[in-house]
Amino acid sequence: MSRSALASGSSIRFSPRPFAAGRAPAPVRILAGLVLPSALLLLWHNASTRGWAPPQILPAPAVAWSSFLDLLASGDLRTHVQASLIRVLISFALGSAAGLALGLAMGLSRRLDDLFGAVFHGINQVPTLGWLPVLIVVVGINDRLTHILIAQAVFVSVAINTQRGIRQVPERLVEVARAYRLSRTQSLRKVVLPAAVPQIFTGIRFGLANGWASLVVVELLVGSEGLGYLMSWGRQAFQLDLVLVAIVAVGIIGWILDAGLARLEGTFTAWRTGEAAA
């Protein structure tokens, strides 16, 4: 650092490190991202016009598109999307809040970890939908079933990753907290949580993705609304165009939910790119 460099400006701006230096400009990237979907669309188009698959099984893109417009106009799509979203958001809120609480407790207390840790890692090995038969017996086939199942998926993922994130905080930084005699709350706030944020978000994002995917499956079986229900109904009515619309909607909404969480994570880790949070 030279003196003249300091003197020349009244304040120095900290531009983000050029992490993205090797990346192409945004328009090029967006175009590149469209290559594969376009190719698939073309394949789909050819498959239906050349009769590779019967129209009852694979409707033409144009048919699917007009079904989509119909669903949009009638408000049906909105109803189904809303139903699915409300279910997943309620379950997600409950599951992640409880998961954070237990994960924190297990991360901070060896004793709690000894008590619950093994059970949790065991539960984590069972796919979310593996609980379905048991839950059907216990709570019946209703909305509670959906909520419990999804909340459980989010809960386990968040709890395990939060615990792991806290355990993985580097000892050398925990020692800084000890050297300055930070209280438990202070070191949690200044040292432990910031260090654990990436791992916690891994748990939250995985939990939500898993929850969303499981929700759709549960809706295939349960209820009279939701994207999964739309799929199931379309299949029974031999309207595969509806199924396709629902599949695309599930994909897009799942992607948006994850992008939202990624953005939220970004606000917690703004220091990585140098945008001061304060």
Binding site: R172, L173, E175, A179, K190, P194, A195, W271
Partner: peptide, 13 residues
Amino acid sequence: IVFQDLRLLPWLT
């Protein structure tokens, strides 16, 4: 103590 490996917290200015 001033640590040999500094130990600044990366998320703090």
